[in-house]
Design a protein around this nucleic acid. Structure first.
Length: 591
RNA sequence: GGGGUCGUAGCUCAGCUGGUUAGAGCGCCGGCCUGUCACGCCGGAGGUCGCGAGUUCGAGUCUCGUCGGCCCCGCCA
């Protein structure tokens, strides 16, 4: 093994070309592949930037050639050599450096490597567990490294853009206090305060508001947030937000800043030109037309409400749903009358996973409507449904019936599934949509109380303050979400900056004055000491990068992600700790 | 908390209705090879069929349990 010593590289493995012919260069990197012909040996040398072919020729230097025979995958090399044009017809168009090769005069073996536990040079699927256990190997693969590079470019664009717009990046505590509502907290026991706990922040929400009260005016932070909930492809227990807050602004100011930032990110990270302003849609319209507050509007299949059309109809299932204050909605799956019984059963099973009790359907044939349920409808009802849905022969009607929330979710998921099955979702399109006019609160049937749709600090619509006490469910909030291709990538609101309003909202949420004082006294006090009007927004960096990189999971854009059980196969976290560590924290284990 | 799916060589996988010695490709090791770029040719090594019970004359295969990966519901202001 050789020492690096004073030797330094002159170029990366992605920058040599015909301009460098005959130059002596020094490259360093990993052995991606070796092709040993007994005589001449070719090594593809890889670093973060790319790949360069280096050549060992026994006629040029027999000692170096002999040494090169030992080389194996992922050994770490330094080579000194001469840039040569490749022989005619032997250029490799797949490599950026494919016009040249480096004829090696000196080889340093900086480190050896065992055979890697999985191949790094092919695009084959490797189990997630193994990849995470050897994450540092997985990240050597250009696709994975490229995701992290693009993430860096995106975050740099954010910092530059916001800095140019007079924002200050300010850090907020990671050790803070647990707050009611929201997700489960990660707790950290306090050694010097036995029996008391910090919580890791679910977001810097209150601190950024306090920074507005501190007169910082424009704050941002690229900040880690923690939520102890079950994981998904797009949810990790720790994730990164671009968090910002502004003073003396309304919704339109924040939306304009956010659009400019997203535009800068897409340009810097993906060389994609966006054209703000983005479209807007109210929450009510989104739910009515798409069944969700984060609609994917890249395709049709919109929901049609048939509740009034079918009130009193002959189909008992629908009738009882409607009588029980439920809704009957439907989508027209254009051209899907060709679906087999198996296809439909399959869709019904899928619908059932979202709480559907069944999935009624009607095929529109040239010779009439074909369905197990069409016989229950009158001619007038059939005519009205057909017109409402705009059906033509060859179409398929899918119904969702039940409580509004269930029917909406079922049909929202069905239209997504249909679009996927029919290949209607065009890759490379970026469909942004602002959702506005959210309800301030919604009634939680299980908890028998109202809970905040956004969070407890979101400002109610100013001319609906009177409704807070009488009919809070009708109050709209000053919140807004940014949806991209059906993914919620950001959300924010104008905040409450008056103590009396904040107290009223707490009251709606069932937070008693004593509890409000105990948990949020510091905020209420700050609201008494000159809190400016303010608002903000936060974006999920991981989800944004998942979409920009075309990844299926945010794990692919996080350097060291966790498994679905929130473990890290690389470090084996979480892990047991010494009993002494627990007793230091005044924790008395019962195991 | 619940549903689905996967687990066989270092990796990716095949292995039917239970049946003799569990296979393939890649990788790895050895040999040959001076223009390859997924180099080629010849030879070889390599297995706790995730783990544990059970059924059976006999289990990679069937049953039950369990562990782990992934996807989803609930949950995630």
């Amino acid at each position: 093994m050789d020492s690096l010593g004073a030797l330094r590289r002159t170029h990366t493995c992605n920058e040599l070309g015909p301009d460098h012919l005959d130059r002596e260069v020094i490259l360093m990197g990993w052995v991606l592949r070796r092709r040993d012909h007994g005589g001449v040996i070719f090594i593809d040398l890889r670093d973060r930037w790319g790949v360069t072919q280096v050549v060992f020729n026994p006629e040029r230097n027999a000692d170096v050639h002999a040494k090169a025979h030992r080389l194996r995958s992922e050994w770490v090399l330094a080579v000194r050599g001469t840039v040569c044009r490749r022989p005619a017809d032997m250029e490799n168009p797949k490599l950026k450096t494919g016009a040249i090769e480096v004829l090696v005069n000196e080889l340093l073996i900086l480190n050896v490597s065992e055979t890697p536990p999985f191949p790094l040079d092919e695009d084959i699927e490797v189990s997630d567990n193994l990849r995470l256990q050897y994450r540092y190997l997985d990240l050597r693969r250009p696709e994975k490294a490229g995701n992290l590079i693009m993430r860096h470019q995106a975050v740099m664009a954010v910092r530059n853009y916001l800095s140019e717009n007079n924002f200050l990046e300010i850090e907020t505590p990671m050790l803070t206090r647990s707050t009611p509502e929201g997700a489960r907290d990660y707790l950290v026991p306090s050694r010097v305060n036995p029996g008391k706990f910090y919580a890791l922040p679910q977001s810097p929400q209150l601190f950024k508001q306090l920074l507005m009260m501190a007169g910082m005016d424009r704050y941002f932070q690229v900040v880690r947030c923690f939520r102890d909930e079950d994981l998904r492809a797009d949810r990790q227990p720790e994730f990164t937000q671009i968090d910002m807050e502004l003073s003396f602004v309304g919704e339109e100011d924040i939306i304009r800043i956010a659009e400019g930032m997203i535009q800068a990110v897409f340009k810097a990270a993906g060389n994609i030109e966006l054209q703000p302003p983005f479209n807007h849609m109210t929450y009510d319209e989104a739910v009515q037309r798409f069944g969700t507050d984060r609609p994917d509007t890249r395709f049709g299949f919109e929901l049609v409400d048939l509740t009034e059309t079918l009130r009193g109809c002959g189909f008992k299932v629908f009738n009882s749903v409607i009588a029980g204050n439920g809704v009957v909605k439907a989508i027209n799956a254009k051209g899907c009358a060709t679906f087999s019984r198996k296809d439909l059963d399959n869709l019904a099973d899928y619908a059932a996973t979202f709480g559907a009790r069944g999935m009624a359907w009607i095929k529109i044939r040239e010779d009439g409507w074909q369905s197990p349920i069409s016989k229950f409808f009158s001619a007038d009802e059939i005519k009205a449904m057909g017109e409402a849905l705009g059906v033509e022969p060859g179409d398929l009607i899918l119904f969702g019936a039940g409580p509004a929330a269930v029917a909406n979710q079922v049909l929202a998921e069905l239209r997504l599934e249909l679009a996927r099955r029919l290949g209607l979702i065009k890759e490379g399109t970026y469909d942004f949509l602002w959702i506005t006019d959210f309800p301030l609160v919604e009634y939680d049937q299980k908890e028998k109380r109202y809970s905040a749709v956004h969070h407890p600090f979101t400002a109610p619509n100013e001319d609906q303050l009177d409704l807070l006490a009488t009919d809070p469910a009708r109050v709209k909030s000053r919140a807004y979400d940014l949806v991209l291709n059906g993914n919620e990538i950001g959300g924010g609101s104008i905040r409450i900056h008056r103590r009396d309003v904040q107290e009223k909202v707490f009251a709606v949420l069932g937070i008693e004055p004593a509890e409000a004082q105990e948990k949020f006294g510091f905020l209420l006090r700050a609201l008494e000491l000159g809190a400016p009007p303010h608002g903000g927004i936060a974006f999920g960096v991981d989800r944004l990068m998942m979409i920009l990189t075309g990844s299926d999971s945010i794990r692919d854009v996080i350097a060291f992600p966790k498994t679905q059980k929130a473990t890290c196969p690389l470090t084996d976290a979480p892990a047991a700790v010494d009993r002494k560590q627990l007793t230091d924290l005044s924790l008395r284990p019962d195991w």
